[in-house]
């Protein structure tokens, strides 16, 4: 299972562009490795990431197998108003992990 963590600045002014840091546990098995018997370990990665802010798209990313295990991803968002950031990570097997964070502007 994957567990995700989100980090936002402690205080945010209205209209400020703030950095959002995300981290999720996942092996990101690259499909390049072999097990002890010599068989290729099949690829299993998180291949998509997306973030919305009060339902509006902020950023999307397609990830390849060269993204490290336990993917860290940081980006920016304009904090126009208080609201909710929603994050989704999509696994090769179709599983979607969701997380959300409250963004409060001063």
């Amino acid at each position: 299972m994957s567990s995700a963590r989100i980090r936002l600045p402690a205080s945010i002014k209205k209209g400020e562009t703030v950095e959002v840091k995300t981290l999720i546990t996942h092996t990101m098995e690259s499909g390049q490795r072999r097990d002890s018997a010599g068989a290729v370990i099949p690829r299993k990665i998180l291949n998509k990431f997306a973030c919305t802010y009060n339902g509006k798209d902020v950023i999307r990313a397609d990830w390849a197998s060269a993204i490290s295990a336990n993917p860290y991803f940081s980006f920016y968002v304009v904090a126009a108003e208080s609201g909710t950031l929603e994050f989704t990570w999509t696994d090769d097997d179709g599983t979607v992990t969701k997380e959300s964070a409250k963004l409060t502007v001063a």
Partner: peptide
Amino acid sequence: PLSGKAEVSTRIR
């Protein structure tokens, strides 16, 4: 445009 800044960071192999 909601991104505000076209910059991302991650870790790669």
